[in-house]
């Protein structure tokens, strides 16, 4: 079973994906701050990280940078999952090895789970979402 680490502080989002992932057979671990992220990474075997950017006082990408410093997690797949859209942020995400940058408001939970399941199965990840505004 794929285990996804959901780094997010919005309780409504958490609520949605807890239900959805369970329905779709994806294991979900939630972390709302940096400490929780590293705890989770240490305790469990994480297959993929869904990373929000504006988390409480922290910046998700700073956390990612720290994650990448550890040898074990250099290649860990990370999808940036946020509503914040800025070119510099996208570039930084890419430079930190994120495999995708998705705007929450442009997607649906179903789409997310399909992408994750396909990736887990085939190892191939298809970038982008269907409802992308131009």
């Amino acid at each position: 079973m794929t285990r996804v680490l959901f780094v997010e502080d919005d309780p409504d989002q958490i609520m949605i994906y807890e239900v959805k992932f369970r329905l779709e057979g994806i294991d979900l671990t939630v972390a709302t701050e940096e400490k929780e992220v590293f705890d989770a990474l240490a305790k469990e075997k994480i297959d993929l990280i869904l990373l929000d950017i504006l988390i409480k006082e922290q910046n998700g990408l700073d956390i990612l940078e720290k994650i990448r410093k550890e040898a074990d997690f250099k290649k860990l797949p990370v999808i940036v999952f946020t509503n914040f859209d800025k070119k510099e942020t996208r570039d930084r995400a890419e430079s930190l090895g994120a495999i995708d940058y998705i705007i929450k408001a442009q997607t649906y939970p179903r789409e997310m789970t399909e992408k994750i399941k396909a990736f887990a199965k085939t190892g191939i990840y298809t970038k982008g979402v269907s409802n992308k505004s131009v």
Binding site: D10, Q13, K104, Y108, R110
Partner: peptide, 16 residues
């Protein structure tokens, strides 16, 4: 960003 936050919740929940 501020606008998208509530939108994404509404969309997600409604779609579910």
């Amino acid at each position: 960003h501020q606008l998208r936050t509530p939108i994404s919740v509404i969309k997600g929940v409604a779609s579910m």
